[in-house]
Amino acid sequence: MRRLLAPFRLRALVRRSEIAYTVIAAVIGIVAGGAVVLMQEAVTFMAVLIFDSAGEVSGAESVSPLRALSGPLAGGILLGASYLIGQRWFRRVADPIEANAVTGGKIAVPGSLFISGQTMVSSGFGASVGMEAAYTQAASALASWGGQKLRLRREDLRQLVAAGAGGAIAAAFDAPLTGAFYAFELVLASYTVAALLPVLAAAISATAVTRLVGGHHGLDLYFAGQIPAPSFIPIAVLAVISAVVGILIMRAVSATENTFRKSVLPGWSQPVVGGLCVGLLALATPRVLSSGHGAMDVVFGSNLTLGALVLLFVLKALASVISIGAGFRG
Rank of each mutant, 00 (worst) to 15 (best):
L200N: 05
L311A: 13
A175M: 01
I204P: 02
L312W: 11
R261V: 04
V109C: 10
G214S: 13
Q148F: 02
F45M: 11
V31M: 12
T136R: 15
G164F: 01
I115E: 13
V298T: 08
L318D: 10
P110N: 06
D52T: 06
L306D: 04
S190G: 01
I322V: 15
P72Q: 04
A12T: 14
A319I: 11
A54I: 02
Q148K: 08
R9N: 11
V272M: 11
L38C: 11
A94Q: 10
I322W: 05
V187G: 03
F125G: 03
V48T: 04
V129C: 15
L281I: 09
V253D: 01
G267E: 14
S116I: 07
G179R: 10
L315M: 14
A243Y: 07
G166S: 01
V48A: 14
P266L: 06
V245L: 14
A165V: 00
N258M: 12
V278H: 06
V109R: 05
P65N: 07
S140G: 11
A208F: 14
V37M: 00
S302H: 13
G76M: 08
M250H: 02
I233D: 06
A236W: 07
F173N: 01
A26L: 03
A99C: 00
K262D: 14
L309N: 06
L289I: 02
V37F: 04
G126L: 11
G267C: 08
G164R: 05
V193D: 09
G267M: 11
S323P: 08
C277K: 08
A32P: 05
A229G: 05
R151N: 07
L280F: 10
G124R: 11
A127Q: 07
E185M: 08
A74Q: 06
F125D: 08
F125T: 13
G294H: 07
A239F: 04
A295V: 00
P7Q: 09
F51T: 13
E155H: 10
V48F: 12
V102H: 03
G34M: 06
V298L: 10
G279F: 07
Y21K: 12
A170F: 04
A243P: 00
R11M: 07
S123Q: 15
Y21A: 12
G76Q: 12
A133D: 14
I227A: 12
S128F: 03
G325V: 09
G218I: 08
G307M: 04
A180L: 08
Q226K: 07
G147D: 01
I19M: 06
G71W: 11
R261K: 14
L13H: 14
E41V: 09
T192Q: 11
G225E: 14
L5I: 13
T178F: 02
V278F: 06
G80W: 05
G267Q: 14
